[in-house]
Structure formats: structure tokens, C-alpha cells
Design a protein around this nucleic acid. Structure first.
Lengths: 121, 121
DNA sequence: CATGGCGGTTCCCTATTTGTAACCGGGGTT
DNA sequence: AACCCCGGTTACAAATAGGGAACCGCCATG
């Protein structure tokens, strides 16, 4: 399976990216960076994510130290999420990726169509 | 499932990230950016990826117009991969992400341990 | 009294991802 | 003859991700 002469960083980069690199995490970070502080259902409505996945994603992000969770025991309860310092530092590479994605979506679609045409005849 | 008032960009960002955002694609792009041109088994050995996943990943990257595939019908066959222009432009946000991952891996691990200690007692 | 919102958790089920192993042709090496 | 390399493809199995729906306490509203 694993070959012998691997790069030393690969495994570690891979580890981090598999933690924070899924698309829900990325979207949550993008929107927390953009709006500063958001509540649970606010994120849910904005992102179009299921309650379950949002809960899991936020828990993971909190565990990884990227997101702060603040619980206000009011009625009704109010839970606010915002980025930690590390989360802020993550914002830069992530939003760079997001912007790239937006800028190149059309070109990717075109490349796909061209590729499919040459292959699938 | 999906709520009503979604952000317009979410779906599109999501689309692109789900295409190019998996960790093998990211690693392939990072290493092609670093070394310019690489052969199939060279990538395989370097990245510690299975033959099957590398094949699938490269095919997707080629389809999305990020990677060029050059087949030399020599004996033994030689297939070289390098980044297209769009792949080059992808390099910046991606390597920023890779560097961030390397720089913050330790802090993430520490945050995890701290979190697990407070919760799982 | 029923309903709804908030912020979740839990169960169930399916779909996608990923790994493992075998195989392919075509040739070289021992 | 037996094995290895290159660059894959295919079949199968296992793990994981992800959605949907139901439920929770607590209170307000109608």
C-alpha cells in the first residue's frame, strides 16, 4: 500500500486537510469570517446545511481550536459562534481558495465539457 | 432539507470545493507545482497514494483542466503530468493552504487534546 | 391545548469514498 | 521459465459521509 520513499510532510498535510478541508468546514469558516458572529440556526439557514451536519461540523471546528462557542443561557437559548485567532489565520488561505473557486468555476465547467466530448464521443 | 434564504455563492463554492477540494487533489497539485513534471509512479511513491486513487485523482484533475497528461509511447511507457495554466493559478491558494496546515498542525493537536480533556473526563 | 422556535442529539438508511488485491499488455532481466 | 517495471483498469469489501426524521427541554404565542 504505502510506498517507501514518501515525503515527510505529505502525511501531516494530509492529516490537517482531512480535518479542516471538507467543504462544510470551509463554508462555515468563510461565513464566520465574513459576518463575525453567527448563531446556530442563522448558519443553518444561510448555508443550507442539515442540522446534523452543522452540529458535527461546528463541534469539530471547536475541537480543533478554530471556532469559539459561546452559550447564553437565556430563554430561548442563544449560542453564538465566531472564529478564534487560529480560525482568523485560517481565513486567509481559505478565502483565497473560495475566491479562486468562484473565479474559475466557469473555466472548469468548460474544461469538463471539452474533456467529456473528446472521451465519451 | 435545504432552507430557503441561502447565500447565492454557497452552492457554487461548494461545487468547486467538492471537486478539487479533496486531499489527494490538493497534494497532487502541491507536488506538481513544486517539481514541475512528474511521472505516474513517481507521484505514487512520493505521495504514498494507492495506484487506484492516484489514477482517479489524475483523471479528475485532467478533466477539470488543471493537469496536463502527456503520454510517451516508449518502452516502457512513460506518462508525464504537469500543471496547466489554470493549475498554476490554483497553485497559489492551494500551497497557502498547505503551508497553513504545516504551520498550525501542532496548535490543532494541542487544541484537540485540551478539548478532549475538558469534555471526555 | 397545539404549535413553533432555539439548539441540539439520536437513529436509520443510503450513497459516496477509499483501500486491497488481482489482472492487463508488452517488453526487459536473470 | 519466472519475475519485475510501467501505467493503468476492474472487482470486491470496508469505512465513512451525509440526509431525513423524530425527539429533547424550555418557554412564548395563538
Amino acid at each position: 500500500m504505502l510506498d517507501n520513499a514518501q515525503c515527510p510532510d505529505c502525511k501531516r498535510i494530509n492529516e490537517v486537510l482531512s480535518r479542516v478541508g471538507d467543504r462544510w468546514s470551509v463554508l462555515v469558516v468563510i461565513y464566520l469570517a465574513r459576518y463575525g458572529t453567527m448563531r446556530f440556526n442563522e448558519l443553518k439557514r444561510t448555508l443550507g446545511i442539515s442540522q446534523r451536519m452543522l452540529s458535527l461540523t461546528l463541534k469539530e471546528l471547536e475541537r480543533d481550536g478554530l471556532v469559539n462557542r459561546t452559550y447564553h443561557p437565556t430563554i430561548p437559548p442563544k449560542v453564538e459562534y465566531n472564529l478564534t485567532e487560529m480560525g482568523q489565520s485560517f481565513r486567509e488561505p481559505v478565502s483565497a481558495l473560495g475566491y479562486w473557486a468562484l473565479e474559475n468555476l466557469n473555466e472548469i465547467d468548460a474544461a469538463r465539457q471539452a474533456y467529456d466530448k473528446t472521451v465519451a464521443k
